[in-house]
Design a protein around this nucleic acid. Structure first.
Lengths: 197, 197
DNA sequence: CGCGACGTTGATTTGCCTCAACGATTGTGG
DNA sequence: CCACAATCGTTGAGGCAAATCAACGTCGCG
């Protein structure tokens, strides 16, 4: 069977862009020209701790996560990225130094890849793209700060409830272990907590 | 004694800008024209939970903090802002909804005030300003994510050491209570922890 | 001076972790 | 298609880091 290069599906990413900036057809084409595509198998690693990251990823299918590993080998989930979400090792992308977190696929997934060097060209060529990223970065910062507050003020059960609100739909498709890791408890405690309702 | 309008001192904020973007004298003047000034007494509240915030603040003297209050009335510090730092109730500024955190002064302080509506005008007039805020927002997001990781992987003592690295200089000028609140422990435990070295 | 905020110390409690054992489910190679 | 391993979720016993509550000394300040 001949290998046929598929048309990339930009509909999801263009819809995401249009929520914050208006691009005409030409600008959309310009933006998409910088994207490439990558398929990931379940558990496939997209970014390994210690390596320099040069790309940001937009998930179109499946689900990714970023996580850090502590000195005991335990994993701690920083972010989940279902379709329509961006994910990156931003520290490494910005600083061009080795990253401290990993990104992998929790199931078979597909992503669009934007290299930082291309992103920076786009920032100059199309200021609306810089605006788009400025806005979604602001929104991410708000979420991230809220999670810090939650970790200081909420019990494990309340953090679980907050998780259910932030990622509705993920609750049933993710292993409990991953959810436990995100809210910052052990799988054992998470299980007992659920049993107590 | 006659009240004399002081010349505002923009040197600190222009230095901060120049670390990320190059502005000529005219652009600098354009940027500064949108800034106003405000002096704060010790403990003065700049942003109250429940009110809609419309401005972002750049600290030129003193020290501010943002914090949230839980249902038991305990305060949890989200951020400290010594001179040279920006601080805002970003959630409220972006969404134009009532904020969930407070901002106040930990000592007599001075800030430059940038209204969101003016900031948005600047984003259009001077794309370099949008670039500047895009960059510092990215950096804030990286710091914020690192703090989440720290809260999940580090002990209280290690978080204190991380704090000392992030805010060197603040260690000696802040009440212990504030530091304890930032790293997420009670003042009592913080005191015992230090005693154990 | 006297009050209130701060820091310290001790006794006790608690939320969550660790370790271990054991079914249930998944997936994979023969 | 089955056998077996690996991963996942559950449950229990015991332990520890940090919270809570309370008492007390100190300092800065109105």
């Amino acid at each position: 069977m001949a290998r046929v290069k598929k048309e990339l599906d930009f509909s999801l990413i263009l819809a995401a862009l249009s929520r914050h900036v208006d691009l005409n057809a030409e600008e959309q084409a310009c933006f998409c020209a910088y994207l490439s595509h990558r398929s990931l198998k379940n558990k496939e690693l997209l970014q390994r701790e210690g390596e320099v990251a040069d790309s940001t990823f937009f998930v179109t299918r499946g689900c990714l996560r970023s996580y850090s590993t502590d000195e005991q080998g335990l994993e701690h989930v920083v972010q989940f990225a279902p379709p329509g979400w961006w994910i990156a090792e931003l520290y490494s992308v910005i600083s061009k130094r080795p990253g401290t977190t990993n990104i992998d696929a929790l199931e078979a997934s597909e992503v669009l890849v934007m290299k930082r060097s291309d992103q920076e060209k786009l920032f100059i060529e199309l200021p609306k793209i810089e605006r788009y990223f400025r806005i979604i970065t602001e929104n991410s910062l708000v979420s991230s700060r809220q999670r810090i507050i939650d970790s200081m003020t909420l019990s494990a059960l309340e953090r679980y409830q907050a998780f259910c609100k932030r990622y509705p739909g993920l609750i049933f498709s993710l292993p409990q272990k991953q959810i436990a890791s995100y809210i910052g408890v052990t799988p054992e405690f998470f299980s007992k907590m659920k049993a107590r309702f």
